[in-house]
Simulated assay, not measured.
Amino acid sequence: MPARISETFRAAASTGHALDAYLDVEADPAADITLGRPAPAGASLLWTGTGISAGNTGNIGSLKQSRLDLATSSGVGIVAAGSAVRPAGVLRTAATAGTLRLRWAQSVSSASPTTLKAGSWLRLMRSS
């Protein structure tokens, strides 16, 4: 099973939050990367993974920007030279504060590691 990494953010109760990130990823192009977002109980999240379509091994291809909900993970393609992945979304919490997590893993198991490089960042900002 591929390794999984989580980043955790505190989200205030009954509030809207803007989520964005810049992920500089190097990986086996056949492995790609899958992103997911567990969130506080009762929260809603609309988000996109924004990157090239999974399975694309070249720099030219479809840009994936489908709108996803909280329960949906998304696979994004990685090219041999490395890829920029730009997840973004809107989190709306219910009456209870909680934790939002970014989870990622290889979409397809590979002996080559998937590396989230230095300079990558994640941000959760209160918007209302």
Rank of each mutant, 00 (worst) to 15 (best):
T57I: 08
V25G: 04
W104P: 00
S62W: 14
T115M: 03
W104R: 09
S14C: 01
R101S: 12
L45A: 07
G42V: 07
T57H: 11
L91K: 05
P38Q: 12
S66H: 12
A111H: 01
A43Q: 05
A30R: 13
L63W: 15
A30T: 13
R37S: 09
G75R: 12
L70G: 13
I52P: 04
G61R: 13
S83M: 09
S53R: 14
G58Q: 13
L100I: 14
S74P: 00
A97C: 02
P29R: 07
L19S: 01
A97K: 06
A105S: 10
G77H: 05
S62V: 15
G82M: 13
K64Q: 15
A12R: 09
S53L: 14
T15Q: 08
R92I: 14
A84S: 11
L91M: 07
G49W: 02
A80G: 09
D20E: 11
V76I: 15
G58C: 00
T99N: 08
A81V: 10
G36R: 07
G58R: 13
G36T: 03
N56H: 01
R92F: 14
G51K: 03
A94C: 02
T93I: 08
A105H: 06
V25I: 15
A94N: 11
L91G: 05
W104G: 00
W104D: 01
D24V: 11
A54N: 03
V90P: 00
L19R: 03
K64R: 13
A12S: 10
V90N: 10
G49I: 01
I52E: 06
R10K: 10
G61Q: 13
T72M: 07
A30V: 01
P38M: 10
P113N: 09
V85T: 12
G49A: 10
K64A: 11
H17N: 07
D28E: 07
S83P: 11
A111G: 02
V108Y: 05
A54Q: 04
G36I: 00
S66Y: 15
W47S: 03
Q106C: 00
A21T: 06
V108G: 00
A41E: 15
G75W: 01
T115G: 02
A11K: 01
G89R: 05
L35R: 06
L63I: 15
S112T: 11
S74W: 04
I60N: 11
G49Q: 04
R103E: 15
L91S: 04
A39W: 03
D69C: 03
T34S: 08
N59V: 10
D32L: 04
G51Y: 01
P40V: 02
A88D: 08
D28H: 03
L63K: 13
Q106T: 00
I78L: 08
S14N: 15
E26Y: 04
A27M: 03
P113C: 01
L45V: 11
L102H: 08
I33P: 09
S73K: 11
V25S: 05
A88Y: 08
S66I: 12
G98S: 03
S74Q: 14
G42A: 06
T72I: 03
G16L: 07
A31S: 15
P29K: 09
A27G: 11
A39F: 05
A11C: 02
A71W: 11
